[in-house]
């Protein structure tokens, strides 16, 4: 895909979880993940804890080295064909914890100005730009510029974090649960800000969240992850109305209905997500899947095209006997 602005090719990341030799335990955080994002698009990434969505974000931004696979920016491999320093200017990240992601000893203006100075902008110009960006994200630079992180609210801090990412004039912003820790009314404000910025600047977002409502609202396409793998990826409307993977179905069914007359009557899945240290063989979801059949425990399904730009990794879509 040469028209993609950012693409992941067979990314793999395993972490050591202790033990030596044969007893060595490995967390298979991300296992062979590939996808691409078109310019100006918002890709939502959903999944439960331990599914590898945050690790994917750090692999995409090269904050973690991948064991295998590569990230390409406009078709060129990040880290080799595009030098990392340049890559980082194009691909920025906003983290979940608005407090931990700001240096407690740095004023908000300096925090936003830091990035440009790294890339050779002189101090006064960087500060002028930082002021303008604070203004843009809705914080009066005269009032908030000289403040420290503990002196402002969570919503305000997350605005500063967004301004800091914008200071590089990036093409892509990876948002890792960026609104999850905020109160609902503040979350709506930040979502609006993100929507406005995207329209203004033609930004591409990779929006990682556990909140399916928010992801539906903001994304053009959605990617669903389970135990380190992509199980389904497709246009938001198609995926939400006609999911093609039983796990996506279950996630959607687990969403509270918001309708007192049609409350959820039965939990779509039993038990907790399994441990990524020792994922089940074959299809990783088969242990919790109500529709598992013949090939599921033995063979891992491969992604298959099930609609326009819609891929799902499930034997139900490909194996004939599933129809019965």
């Amino acid at each position: 895909m040469s028209d993609a602005i950012l693409s992941a090719h067979n990314l793999v990341k395993h972490f050591n979880a202790g033990g030596w030799g044969a007893a060595r335990k490995v967390v298979r955080a991300v296992d062979d993940v590939s996808f691409d994002v078109a310019p100006g698009e918002t890709l939502g990434v959903v999944g439960e804890s331990g599914c590898g969505k945050s690790t994917t974000a750090r692999l995409l931004t090269h904050l973690l080295p991948s064991d295998r696979g590569e990230v390409r920016f406009r078709g060129r491999v990040a880290g080799t064909e595009v030098p990392l320093k340049e890559f980082r200017r194009h691909v920025q990240m906003v983290f979940q914890d608005s407090y931990a992601s700001l240096n407690p000893r740095m004023t908000m203006l300096d925090a936003v100005a830091f990035g440009p100075t790294v890339h050779g902008v002189d101090q006064p110009e960087a500060r002028r730009r930082a002021g303008a960006l604070l203004e843009r994200v809705g914080l009066d630079p005269a009032r908030f510029g000289p403040r420290y992180p503990h002196e402002i609210s969570g919503g305000q801090r997350q605005r500063v974090n967004i301004a800091r990412a914008l200071a590089f004039d990036p093409d892509v912003i990876v948002l890792d649960e960026a609104v999850s820790a905020l109160d609902k009314s503040v979350e709506a404000q930040v979502l609006n800000l993100l929507t406005e910025l995207r329209r203004e600047r033609g930004l591409t977002y990779i929006f990682i969240s556990h909140d399916l409502n928010v992801v539906r609202h903001i994304s053009d396409r959605v990617m669903v992850m389970y135990l380190g793998e992509v199980v389904e990826i497709g246009p938001t409307a198609d995926l939400y109305t006609a999911p093609r993977h039983p796990y996506t179905e279950a996630l959607l069914a687990a969403m509270p209905s918001l309708d007192p007359d049609r409350r959820t009557m039965e939990a779509p899945l039993q038990g907790d997500p399994p441990n990524p240290i020792d994922p089940p063989p074959g299809c990783r979801f088969h242990t919790r899947c109500a529709r598992a059949f013949g090939p599921c425990p033995g063979t891992a399904p491969v992604p298959a095209l099930v609609g326009r730009r819609h891929l799902a990794s499930c034997h139900l879509n490909t194996v004939k006997e599933a129809a019965e």
Partner: peptide
């Protein structure tokens, strides 16, 4: 509105200002 009850995807939300 902030819980996206009946919100139109991609549109601006009717957000409560302030804190």
């Amino acid at each position: 509105a902030a819980n996206l009850v009946g919100a139109e995807p991609g549109a601006l939300l009717k957000a409560i200002p302030g804190a």
